[in-house]
Design a protein around this nucleic acid. Structure first.
Lengths: 408, 408
DNA sequence: CTACTTTGTTCATATGCAGAACTAAATACA
DNA sequence: TGTATTTAGTTCTGCATATGAACAAAGTAG
């Protein structure tokens, strides 16, 4: 049976987690090897692995022959030990995926938000229910939900701020409502932060302890990874560089005040505005500007260059504050090679020993992958914890799907 | 006898440290209370406290009567369990203090560096030896040395960079040389980082999990505290905002390139330069400019205001990156009320919901206090660690004072 | 003087883990 | 083919750490 080990293993938290982590990280591995890596005795490891196997968290894979000595039975994380759901809540559409404990997506779907997002929760729940049924996953095996949102998530107050593009969320807070219905831990996280986690897990951030992920799209945002951990800030606002004060008093206009000083000069919008002002042709979209630039259009090139310089300034400022190892550029605009090149150029202009800049390798999937990484980390961190988190333990009684409509 | 507990207590690291920390933090406290606070059984706590008492790390203080029940014997950290030395290595002088484990300074001295600092190590060692002798402290009771330096300390490479004001350091690295001679753990740390730790321990940062400490003096620097921990950066360069790129290409001159773009507009030097340019009177020093400002001199006021605005911009930028709870302004310039007021004004101008700014309450002592806090934390963290740090274990044989002169 | 409360110790017990001895099952080589 | 060697994994014994209950000690409340 799959379940929390805590009742039977109150005193083995540290070593149990060590063994579990070792098996997760080092794939199919024998107990003897685990013992060597963790420094525990073979006996202890055998005991712990038996426990983990009994609870279905790990499983035998096969055996290793060919080398000297007795055949080794190898163990690996049992992918079907549990499942997680990850959600990317955009302004116009909903991306949803379910994955097993090995981090493999069983399915990803995307659906446009109906009614401008008036019924996000219902849409989300019905899509999730559908997926679970289709893949024959019982509710009890759904262990974590992570939702990415385009806004600032304050974990203390459990609220989402500064999310103009987000559809109206239910009153009690999306997290509380979803947890109440699903009776499963739910985590909300800023989408750029998730993308940073994603890059750290499967992208250019692998092996980098500390880096910043800068997403340039319609706007600009940043995710801060320090020593492998996401830094969220005191109120969840870390990396909200759109509001970085980079303008002189004269340049500060109403738009800059509302959307942020940096965002008004370092974003897709800024490229459009700059090109529109220079060319007197405001009816143009971003792909067109980049096409023009590719064909050598001076005005388009200059608009892109100006924005790249502003991005470089923000990256340089962040680098002087944090001293990271790397900057990963992402987002629909930031991921383009033209931007990367110009940002690198300007960064080298403004600082000696400039921070290395690289382009995201995950693209649009960074967010969902980051949500998955976060979900898996949450679940894996709970294996040997003394009990379910307080929030779930005293959770509301299991509500059925209909009740949310009344709550909304 | 005072010593490392490890030989006798290999398996009690976690709980032993818990009990020790509890006694350190909650002052004179009875064993029963420790048991309640830590959740351990009375029996276990009694055993651990006996151990700690035997090793002289804690001592009985007295007993608590008056309340219902049996008299409680209270314990506290034994101040004479060990001593630490803290050093502030400036460009022209040396500050040195020794303190007991309770964090009380026994003595602080300051001495000008002779020969422009050619013999820092010798001066430091002779002063330290003098202090130890005077207060009758055997070498074996000196448990940690922390040295604050005006430069970037890279812990991985054990080197000090960007320290133009620092006297020539010995070839092998100050840390290695001192450790070799004293046979004691030595930690080098940037002086602004130390001041930030100091503010967190005994200043305005108390109770603040995350804040930035901005020191404005001749130059400008920052210390970043995140969740009570100092963030040093990948190469020790976090908070080196002097190099923050805030200038336009035209403004970037040679001086700005060398000392940093922000430092050229947000520092004591910048105030002098701005006032000098405006008044055509370059032969003036900083106190005079502030005196002039106090008497209403428009040019002086404007120079200070411009610099305050630049500081506010850097603080705002840092806040957008980190989302701290507070900014503490310090340094010889930053600590002045005129600066505080102007920085607050400009910060409010450039961002809605501006970061709260407060003035340092420790002043010049912040650095030494921070070094002390760091030293105590180091020592207290070692009580139950399995062994002395690798660096010390394989340390060079004890060298006498003469040998350093040959090494230099 | 008795009842009650809190501190601290003693004793029996559970258990997590290490280390040695042992079994199991492969390869290496004569 | 058989023996030596090597590695994997189990069993057994023992120790150290911690718990919990019972008990002793030492105070206050009335």
């Amino acid at each position: 049976m799959s379940g929390i080990l805590s009742e039977s293993a109150l005193g083995r938290q540290v070593n149990g987690q060590m063994v579990m982590d070792c098996i997760i990280q080092h794939g199919p591995i024998s107990r003897a090897q685990v013992a060597k890596m963790t420094g525990l005795s073979k006996q202890t490891v055998s005991e712990l692995v038996s426990m983990l196997e009994e609870c279905d968290w790990v499983r035998q894979v096969g055996s290793v022959q060919g080398r000297l000595g007795r055949t080794a039975v190898t163990y690996e994380l049992n992918p079907c030990a549990g499942y997680v759901a990850v959600v990317d809540l955009g302004g116009t559409q909903l991306k949803l995926g379910i994955a097993d404990m090995a981090g493999e997506f069983l399915e990803e779907i995307r659906a446009p938000l109906t009614d401008g997002g008036a019924h996000v929760v219902e849409q989300l729940l019905s899509n999730l229910a559908e997926l679970l049924e289709k893949h024959d996953i019982p509710r009890s095996k759904l262990l974590q939900v992570v939702v990415g949102v385009p806004g600032i998530v304050d974990r203390k107050t459990r609220s989402v701020h500064h999310a103009p593009n987000l559809p109206a969320l239910p009153g009690g807070g999306l997290e509380t409502v979803l947890r109440g219905i699903l009776a499963v831990p739910v985590l909300l996280e800023n989408e750029v932060n998730l993308a940073a986690i994603g890059e750290s897990w499967r992208g250019k951030g692998q092996g980098q302890g500390s880096f910043i992920f800068v997403a340039v799209g319609t706007g600009i945002g940043m995710g801060v990874m320090l020593d492998g951990m996401l830094w969220r800030g005191a109120r969840g606002g870390a990396g909200e560089i759109g509001y970085m004060p980079v303008l002189t008093d004269e340049e500060m206009d109403e738009a800059a005040r509302r959307h942020g000083a940096l965002e008004s000069v370092a974003s897709g919008q800024a490229i459009l505005r700059l090109y529109g002002e220079a060319s007197q042709n405001p009816c143009i979209d971003l792909p067109q500007v980049f096409d023009l630039a590719a064909s050598g259009d001076e005005l388009a090139l200059r608009a892109i260059d100006r924005v790249a310089r502003s991005c470089a300034r923000a990256i340089g400022a962040s680098a002087s504050v944090l001293d990271p190892e790397l900057c990963i550029l992402g987002g629909s605009i930031g991921g383009r090679p033209e931007m990367l090149e110009r940002v690198r150029y300007w960064l080298a202009e403004m600082m000696e020993d400039p921070l290395p800049v690289d382009a995201s390798s995950l693209g649009k999937r960074a967010g969902l992958l980051g949500a998955l990484a976060l979900a898996l980390r949450e679940v894996n961190g709970r294996h040997f914890s003394p009990q379910l988190p307080e929030s779930i333990k005293h959770s509301e009684t299991y509500l059925n799907m209909e009740s949310v409509i009344q709550m909304d």
